[in-house]
Design a protein around this nucleic acid. Structure first.
Lengths: 195, 195
DNA sequence: GTCTATAATCCGATAGAC
DNA sequence: GTCTATCGGATTATAGAC
């Protein structure tokens, strides 16, 4: 791996763990195995490293979700349910990306707030469209109720995804708890959307 | 207001906006209107200021929610619905407390992670108990389904609250959007739990 | 591209006068 | 309790040799 990529990889890990202000260039250089001034041969300054890390993190996170969505086959119920489980598992196993993504989406360094937001807003809409298709098909095939609109179910599903991520961080679930937790959440959602 | 309280108030604002490492004692002193060394007459060090701010933030946030829960009257449906709306409104109006609370619950300065968690875990369970009571009554009075357990509905409700907070930050809803958004989320949840 | 050396600044914290 | 003065250290960033 090229030094430049190593720098970005190390940066994502350190920024995730310690935040923007809590991560020093010295710590990044140490993790890469070079000296601090060598960083400036690859990036203009700390801000440039961080913003490029944000771009990579955003792309990586949305690719991960997109791949998950596209891999699912079967009924809408099965797809939505599997996706919930996989997404939640990813919060833990591949949690570096999602931690990085959400940390700086919600709590960006104040000076870079606008720049970050302009990077992240693009990928979101495409994911929404993929999910909306799945829900629409579920409705057409009589699995999902027609008493609700596609958008109502889409928003609720996304709310469930976000809330699950939220709760897992909040309550620090073990993997046993998590399985039971997902079952509980899903059962109410499914009761709410099934035909 | 005593200097000590001013320091804590200024600290909560600054820590919320800029994080632990991103907030300097100089900035806190400036906001209070004193010089930096004067802080040490009231607190041992930066860490002590922060940890006391966390205690105050935790207590304030949970008191806010508790007051909201206790103020609600009527059917379980009405209580749960109103609480959702009020809690979401509080995320915006009184958002300083909730921002502070969640920032450091989810992304604490690594060195203080355990200390913070020991402060915040206590208040949570009491709120869960209050909500469980409301749900139980709703079930007894035939409003809520008996096909689901109280815990299933409680977890789903909390997931909805968390997910809503999540989405509002994520999508940066305007107040018009928010009203329609809540209506959509609620309609699915209610379909999921009603008798 | 990587290094040593160093500049310039900011930080948390202390000493000591009032 | 508040201040001025200051220490010791860490930080971002640059200069310049190899």
């Amino acid at each position: 791996m090229k030094t430049r990529e190593k720098i970005l990889e190390a940066s994502i890990e350190l920024f995730t763990a310690s935040g923007y202000e809590g991560t020093s260039l010295g710590a990044i250089a140490d993790k890469v195995g070079i000296k601090k001034p060598s960083l400036y041969a690859h990036f203009k300054n700390k801000e440039a490293i961080f913003l490029e890390a944000v771009e990579i993190g955003e792309a990586g996170y949305h690719d991960l979700l997109k791949r998950m969505i596209n891999e699912q086959k079967g009924t809408a119920a099965h797809i939505l349910r599997s996706l919930l489980e996989e997404a939640v598992a990813a919060f833990e196993e591949e949690h570096l990306l999602s931690q990085f993504y959400y940390r700086f989406l919600f709590f960006p360094p104040s000076a870079l707030e606008e720049k970050i937001r302009s990077i992240t807003t693009q990928g979101t809409r495409r994911l929404d469209a993929l999910l909306a298709d799945i829900i629409e098909r579920g409705q057409e095939e009589g699995e999902l109720t027609t008493e609700l609109t596609i958008e109502q179910m889409l928003r609720s599903y996304l709310c469930m995804l976000g809330g699950t991520d939220f709760d897992i961080r909040y309550y620090q679930h073990s993997s046993v708890d998590r399985k039971a937790y997902l079952e509980m959440i899903w059962s109410v959602f499914w009761r709410g959307v099934k035909a």
